[in-house]
Nucleic acid binder design. Structure first.
Lengths: 200, 200, 200, 200
DNA sequence: TATGAATGAGGATTCATTCAT
DNA sequence: AATGAATGAATCCTCATTCAT
């Protein structure tokens, strides 16, 4: 399969530099000059490969999302039981590979832009709804058929978990939590919810 | 009651305009000129009253935090039982007065800056730890003394609630949730945690 | 009646510098930096006073047109007979005050932009049609009522004179003619047209 | 007759694309990238075939001039009487083939550059003086030998016609005239001049 | 012959900030 | 207390040009 084309290579370099710069300097500090310099390239090349700063940012956000989606898909594919599938989703979202200082900081930067860029908003909506749908699907296989208010419970627990995951990313981005704690927290919340259902 | 001094009045006008501008135009779009124009003042006045753009932003964040802190204090003061105190905290953080599109959007903008401004970071840390401490205090009065691993449980449930609240703010800022749903979700999560404890 | 306001003064300075720069460096060479430097101001001030480069250019074109219109109006007002009115129009358009190297070069620069700026096109159309209407009006008082095809003749001679004037401006801008020759040429063309009418 | 060399072909493609781009986007909008894209070639090729943007522009102006010169020569060659020769010149300059929106717009773009490029100025001077000389020659055969002030009259009418032609090109470029009107106007001006001479 | 990678300069524009009034 | 004049730096972007392949 040979070497990647220069175009792909350069785009990757720039996206990687963009992520690093967003992490270290924030959205405001992420000027094209700085990003390009970090990538060892000239600023003009961004226009050449992305056309626009906005497009570079969009590509960067998509890059981060793809990594997360792929991770989810991989872990889901390896899971065999419903419980494993639920744990796979938690592990994918809170695993140390995605849940790094860089990734979370970049997400934070993007979240702040979402309301002012329809393009970014779209990517964010897709990511959110994909996780929600995966969670509901996994929960659906776990809750007994005859449970009263089953659908509502699925939605509620799914939303709770998704919100919890967002909150943990946020906290990680703000520097108040370690990856290892987070999975335990999410898992015990699942336990608690099941306990509540059993208690009814 | 007397008139507020002009200084206080102007500072308030500018902070209010700053919030509105952050909401509508985001951090990047919030230039001093725009903020001042919205306040009906000239751009030069910001220097007069705040010295700096950074200081205006800091004051704005403090303004938002104060409102949340005061709300928490008010509702806590009105609560009589431990359960009411816990509900008061949830109501203060997720009540429709704080949990508005404006407030959440402004928080989002600030979160993205926190890692690049020690001053903002300090305010954020105070807010976070104040809520955490309030939550732990309220939970401490609810969990039985003899519960094994009591302290760890308090910390865990407190963290879970705090993270959930952050996640809900985030989601509200991104436009995927209504205020009314959120309190129910938080309350039912509390129920679930208690159910889990009872189940052990 | 007192000094002009700073705003008016600065706008005038910039417009004057713009004209000079267009003359010496052409449209392409007329960067904001160069214009501002010639005016002894900083480049940022253009935004302050005009908002835009396009608006500065528009104001500059309007400035030139105003001067021409005013000159026409002044000379027309001083004219007493129909013949004097016709000569007044020629004198206004080809007089040495408007018909200078600077003015004609600026017109040349603008003409080249007219097809790519609706704003400039509008100003150009107004100028053209104002001269045409003035010419037709003056000619109307000169041609005998009973002349067959009178209206068509008025339009034709008017157009001929207007086109001749444009052509002379163009030639002046390209450096091939002196102002004094031009009025004689225009006047003799008028004579020729009248001779043709008398000959019929 | 054989195929034209690739070099000639490519140069022609680029010149044609340059004309079209000057027409549609004006001098400012005519970047090498855009011109090359319209020609279906890469931007780098311009350097290969012309060395320079300036040289491409020069070649383009020469291309337009050649077409006009050739047209004049063809029509002159077909003319048999002095009057036909004069009409031939008018027809060549105001015929619908040269007098098109494209051609006039390109001329306009070039005129605006002439004062800032000696190379372009030279081409423009040649074109102007060639037309003037042709006109004077044709007029010389028409005016009676014994006419007092004959040489001055030739120069004057020649200049008048040349200026009129320029003015008509200008007006066509600015979009205020149709080709068919123009020849009639030029011809009737010639009539008028002759009437004036006869009247003396 | 042709491409497109790469650069660096230059342009318009925005903006926080300072200062005289 | 308040304005708005003025600056200069920084940002994004466009572009002509060069060069390796």
């Amino acid at each position: 399969m040979g070497r990647r084309s220069i175009k792909t290579q350069r785009r990757d370099d720039l996206i990687r530099a963009c992520i690093q710069t967003l992490h270290e300097d924030g959205w405001e500090g992420a000027s094209l000059a700085r990003i390009a310099r970090r990538a060892g390239l000239s600023a003009g090349l961004v226009a050449h490969y992305f056309g626009d700063k906005a497009e570079l940012m969009e590509a960067t956000m998509r890059h981060i999302c793809f990594a997360l989606w792929r991770r989810q898909a991989d872990l889901l594919a390896a899971a065999e039981t419903p419980v494993q599938r639920l744990h796979a989703l938690i592990a994918a979202n809170l695993g140390s590979d995605q849940f790094s200082a860089e990734s979370t900081a970049v997400w934070l930067a993007f979240w702040a832009q979402v309301n002012h860029s329809e393009r970014l908003a779209r990517i964010q909506r897709i990511t959110t709804s994909r996780l929600a749908s995966n969670l509901r699907h996994a929960l659906g296989a776990l809750l007994p058929r005859e449970l009263p208010g089953r659908d509502a419970e699925i939605r509620r627990i799914g939303l709770c978990l998704a919100v919890l995951i967002d909150g943990l990313w946020l906290r990680a981005a703000l520097g108040g939590i370690t990856p290892t704690e987070t999975q335990a927290l999410a898992l015990s919340t699942v336990d608690a919810e099941f306990a509540r259902l059993a208690n009814r």
